[in-house]
Amino acid sequence: MADLFTVNKSPFEKNSLENAIKFSTEGASILLIEDGVYGASKGTACESMITGAAGKKFYALKSDLKARGIADDRLIDGVEVVDYAGFVELVCSTDKTQAWL
């Protein structure tokens, strides 16, 4: 098993997503929350951070996507949408949670 990393910053604002990817192990889960969900949209200059990250699983929080008008068809392929119950499930099913603020 591996860790869960939460990322709450837009990738355009801070390097939290970039470094969460860099410092996570193979098999890690990366959950985008709050402004972090902007990183889940395709066609952006930051898209390759996620599409180029092999061996990591990406998730985005549903209510934060909806609040920011990011529809499912705008999501990068492979990013899984979870609700808060799914967030809790991710926390419990991984070794520990690291917040990359």
């Binding site: 709450n8 709050e34 209510s63 934060d64 808060y84 967030f87 809790v88 926390v91 419990c92």
Partner: peptide, 18 residues
């Protein structure tokens, strides 16, 4: 938003029996 996220997370955890 941190405290909002924390609230919804905490609520979901409790509702799911944790």
């Amino acid at each position: 938003q941190a405290t909002d996220t924390a609230y919804h997370f905490t609520k979901a955890a409790l509702e799911n029996g944790h």
